[in-house]
Simulated scan of single mutants.
Amino acid sequence: MDEAGLLRVGLRSSQAIVNGEPFAADLADGLRRVVGADCVCIDVCHDWKVQRPSITLAGEPGTLTVGEVDRWISLYPDDPYVVNLLATGDPRPYRTSDYMTLTRFQDTPIYREVFSRLEMRHLVVMTPSFTEQDLVMIGMTRRLYDFSDRETSAFHPLRDMIAVALEYRSKVKAIIASINVDDLTPPPRHLTLTERENQVLALIATGLTNDQTARKLGISPRTVRKHLEGVFTKANVPSRAAAVAWWLRQLGR
């Protein structure tokens, strides 16, 4: 899997979210291509306890009937990931195989009624937003082979990046609502960072150290520091935290 490509997909989607633009279709398609999943499903719900989610699919199947969607949603409480999410609130990426064997999974109603018909055996799910109101879940499936430990680890910074963007956008919408004004169309962005500088900041924004960022990108910690120094100069900021704060503001322009 192209981990740098995965971060680029996350960065583009984060920028769309911050700017109030549609993101689910591009994110689903980008993940399908970069990850090599047979199907990517993104659920977005703004009142998940009472409303059915908006479901975006990329790959196979390209569409589901209303009845199929409703049946899938009705079986969510049987999904091992959802069971763990509701019990623990843990939104991180997990494979179905982290919870149970394939044989046991094949005995569940959600497998028999949904995934077996689609011939999907291996799943990984993550939740970038899980609040009292909002729920955003990203699921990826494969027919032939499971997601590896390395792939699952690589999904963590992606999830964190999308989560930060969703939280930022939610706060902006709340402020707009509180002052009773229409949402403002953002002016064109003028990002001056290189692709690598963006990648470094995207990882640091998720809480990684310089050394961890270097390992993720396959470069040296010294190179990470050089990229940060370039950002410090361009943004006229003194520290990593200030650089990340500046970078997030650029996403919101």
Rank of each mutant, 00 (worst) to 15 (best):
Ile175Cys: 10
Ala58Leu: 01
Arg95Val: 14
Ala174Lys: 02
Tyr111Thr: 06
Phe155Cys: 07
Ile176Ala: 11
Val224Asp: 08
Ser148Pro: 09
Gly62Val: 04
Glu60Ser: 12
Thr131Tyr: 04
Pro186Tyr: 04
Ala16Gln: 02
Leu85His: 08
Asp98Ala: 15
Leu144Trp: 10
His156Leu: 15
Gly62Glu: 13
Met140Asn: 03
Leu27Phe: 01
Arg150Asp: 02
Arg150Gln: 03
Met120Ser: 13
Glu151Phe: 15
Pro157Gln: 01
Ala205Phe: 03
Tyr76Val: 11
Lys234Asn: 12
Thr141Met: 10
Tyr81Ile: 15
Ser239Trp: 06
Ser13Phe: 03
Asp211Met: 01
Arg169Trp: 04
Asn236Arg: 07
Leu135Pro: 06
Leu208Arg: 14
Ser148Met: 08
Lys216Trp: 09
Gln133Thr: 04
Asp70Cys: 09
Arg189Asn: 09
Thr194Pro: 14
Ile17Met: 00
Thr101His: 06
Arg143Cys: 15
Arg32Asn: 00
Arg225Tyr: 02
Ala241Ile: 04
Gly67Asp: 14
Val224Ser: 14
Asp107His: 05
Ala163Thr: 03
Leu144Ala: 14
Leu135Met: 12
Asp26Thr: 01
Ile176Phe: 06
Ser153Pro: 05
Val35Gln: 01
Thr152Met: 15
Tyr81Asn: 15
Ala245Lys: 15
Ser116Ala: 10
Ala241Asp: 09
Asp149His: 14
Asp183Ala: 03
Ala235Asn: 15
Gly218Val: 07
Asp26Glu: 02
Tyr94Thr: 12
Tyr94Phe: 13
Ala243Lys: 08
Asn84Trp: 11
Thr206Asp: 08
Ala16His: 00
Gly67Glu: 14
Val114Asn: 11
Arg253Ile: 11
Val35Ile: 14
Pro187Lys: 06
Thr131Gly: 07
